[in-house]
Write a protein that binds this DNA or RNA. Structure first.
Lengths: 242, 242
DNA sequence: ACAATAGTGTCTATTAGACAATATGCG
DNA sequence: CGCATATTGTCTAATAGACACTATTGT
């Protein structure tokens, strides 16, 4: 780790202190909109502003553990328990990203099904989901982190089965399709989507049950064992090729 | 960042110190083998062992800058200058990953063309490329980081034009195909590869020049403006779908 | 009947993957 | 020539994308 013959002046103990935090971008699909969980800050800096849930990593805790703990503390145990997927997103460490001191944050991406009621129960003064298309001003560099989280989610849906993390245990293919439509921001052709999902080995498994939702009852499915989608489900036009 | 009402005991200044480092996995294709640059450690822990180039992030430096600086210091300016692509890979922060103290490392992935001569010129006692299939025992958790870097490179070649980072400015499609074969560890059908590359808008541009290499002279190409590959170039069997 | 959602059939243009064949250098 | 590598032609099975159509509920 230490450069083998770094000058003695670079003993880390001589450095100005560095803090390491974890921030979590919790995404869900709410009312047809890809949404992210934000908490209202109670203290400076950015007191009263909105930020991602997160906080300092404790001495004996791994980074992923810290992300889960902070999520439970700030957004409530119920929401933390509903997290179906948690992965590391990226780290952000611009020297001036926190006015108090040097802080490097390791950001995580979490996916949850739409919560049944209002979120809360955590320490934060307020916690709610915001449509990613209509965000308030965010503290620190959290707008960048959210943008990166959204982009990661978009590509994850192409190559993995993670879309099932946005729906309840049992779901219809229509619900799954609406997840794709919300995350990608584009309409999908229902009949073709139906077949492509079923052709992807291990993506979904029928339960045998049906639901009624105002039209013809739909078959219910469960997430299958596959984690990657072969072949991938590609967006029509990701954003140009260059 | 700070949990709005975290107990006062979690002021970061009270914590045992945390250090932040950057480690760089420099990949290249050497002698038909996907290879990674390792440096021999001069000091404890793991003195005499092999590790990724890297070191402590300095107070006023961004994470990516630290990665570039450490690379130049430990592997020589020539190699650092040949880096055609540098991206953040992931962060590693298990509490006991460094025996000296709590160290969180932000790992970067760099891609370079095969170096013309031996690497070196840096501070490290020794620096050389090792085939990723035949690595020595690595210090810290660097074996995990290398494995993640290799996996990232494999999928990057499917969806991006980054394969061109492994070859010189001007190259033949045969050289490009051999990069894919080395990184993916599988043979590719030359005629079909040739056409798929040319059909991918903006992947490569002909220079008009030719080379002779023992067979029919090949046309030389340059990297095109595209950064993403549409359609993607998919591996035959990535590793199963589940 | 009509609206609404689910699901199937089928056609066509495109593509992937395999193989054959040709091109052009070297000894 | 014979060998090696590059490049083009072409065929076939599979796929994507579009559209028409049928199915099953509630009002």
């Amino acid at each position: 780790m230490a450069s083998p013959d770094a000058p003695a002046t670079y003993d880390p103990r001589d450095y100005p202190p560095v803090a390491v935090t974890c921030d979590v971008g919790v995404l869900t699909v709410l009312a047809g909109q890809l949404s992210v969980l934000l908490v209202e800050r109670g203290e400076a800096p950015f007191a009263g502003g909105w930020a991602l849930p997160g906080g300092f990593v404790r001495p004996d805790e791994d980074l992923g553990q810290a992300a889960r703990r902070e999520l439970a503390e700030e957004a409530g145990a119920a929401l933390a328990a509903s997290v179906e997927h948690l992965e590391q997103l990226a780290s952000y460490g611009a020297p001036d990203r926190d006015p108090r001191m040097r802080v490097v944050t390791v950001a995580y991406l979490a996916l949850v099904p739409a919560p049944p009621g209002p979120v809360g129960g955590g320490d934060a003064a307020a916690a709610r989901f915001w449509a990613t298309e209509d965000l308030p001003t965010l503290a620190f560099d959290h707008a960048t982190i959210v943008a990166d989280a959204v982009e990661r989610a978009r590509t994850a849906l192409e190559h993995t089965t993670l879309a099932t993390s946005f729906v309840p245990d049992e779901f219809t293919l229509g619900e799954l399709r609406r997840v794709y439509e919300a995350v990608w921001g584009q309409r999908l052709h229902a009949p073709n989507f139906h077949r492509k999902v079923q052709r992807s080995e291990g993506f979904v498994e029928p339960t045998g049950q049906r639901t009624a939702t105002g039209g013809r009852p739909a078959l219910l499915y469960r997430a299958g064992p596959a984690r990657t989608l072969v072949p991938p489900l590609l967006r029509a036009d990701p954003e140009g090729s260059s």
